[in-house]
């Protein structure tokens, strides 16, 4: 738990993330979510597990108001996700997308990290300090003036994380953070994430990574939450995993 969470009295603080009865159908009629319920307390790290096409990414895009729910509601630290609050909601929810090349679009790392906070109104020295802090947090301070094109996959992923950290979000949302990473880069990213101590929602089907980073997991399939509990217990339930097209990699055993 981060210190900020410990300072406040837990009873008065609203959940970092509250999703109630969320249902959504794409404009083409495809129904992706059928009533999702999820509550994440401040400081928690939760993994969202599920097979491809389970609705994980659709859920993520509701958290910062890119999609508007067909039914149900979403609130971030007590603030309902609605048109009027979109700007603040997007500051509070930082999404790190799966492909860093989609996220990093500016000619230099520094400008990319500055893009978010500048949009949220930071200027001058304050902005520079925020950018420097975010880059230092992911260990990329010395690469600030390079082009994202010339970084390795792991470095790009960490810069993508910094671009979101620079907005100082209440909730960090990561979409498949370990995809396409070599083992060392994967471990380095895990160390960075554990060191941040922020409320984190991690969408993944990398089960060992979920176990390493998130004490709690939520299993989503066919647009509903089918299981919610301690990651270790969930991953030890082979029958449950098999029923939802998930399995631990070869050589892994949890019992």
């Amino acid at each position: 738990m981060p210190e900020t969470a410990a300072d406040d009295t837990p009873t008065t603080r609203p959940p970092a993330l509250l999703v109630e009865g969320l249902a959504y159908a794409y404009p083409d009629g495809h129904q992706a979510l059928f009533g999702i319920d999820l509550r994440v307390e401040p400081g928690e790290r939760v993994a969202v597990l599920g097979p491809n096409g389970a609705g994980k990414t659709t859920l993520v895009l509701h958290l910062n108001g890119v999609h508007t729910p067909g039914a149900g509601r979403v609130a971030v630290a007590g603030l309902p996700v609605a048109k009027a609050n979109l700007r603040e909601v997007r500051r509070r929810v930082g999404i790190v997308f799966q492909d860093p090349d989609d996220q990093l679009f500016m000619p230099t790392v520094r400008e990319d990290v500055a893009f978010g906070p500048a949009n949220f109104g930071l200027r001058g020295a304050e902005l520079d300090a925020r950018v420097a802090a975010a880059l230092a947090a992911v260990g990329m301070a010395e690469h600030a003036d390079r082009s994202p094109m010339h970084l390795s996959g792991g470095q790009r992923r960490r810069v993508a994380l910094a671009t979101v950290l620079a907005c100082d979000p209440e909730v960090l949302v990561l979409d498949e953070p370990s995809a396409n990473l070599e083992p060392v880069a994967r471990r380095e990213l895990a160390e960075v994430l554990l060191g941040l101590g922020r409320t984190t929602l991690m969408v993944t089907h990398d089960l060992p990574y979920a176990l390493q980073l998130c004490p709690r997991s939520v299993l989503v399939d066919e647009g509903v939450v089918v299981a919610d509990g301690p990651t270790r217990e969930l991953l030890a339930d082979t029958a449950l995993l098999a029923a939802h097209r998930l399995e631990l990699p070869f050589g892994f055993r949890l019992d």
Partner: peptide, 22 residues
């Protein structure tokens, strides 16, 4: 398609149509 994803990522970081003036 990448353009759409980039746009989504930009919107998620509070982009409203103008680049920050550097």
């Amino acid at each position: 398609e990448r353009g759409e994803r980039v746009h989504l990522a930009m919107v998620s970081r509070g982009w409203t149509g103008t680049m920050p003036d550097a």
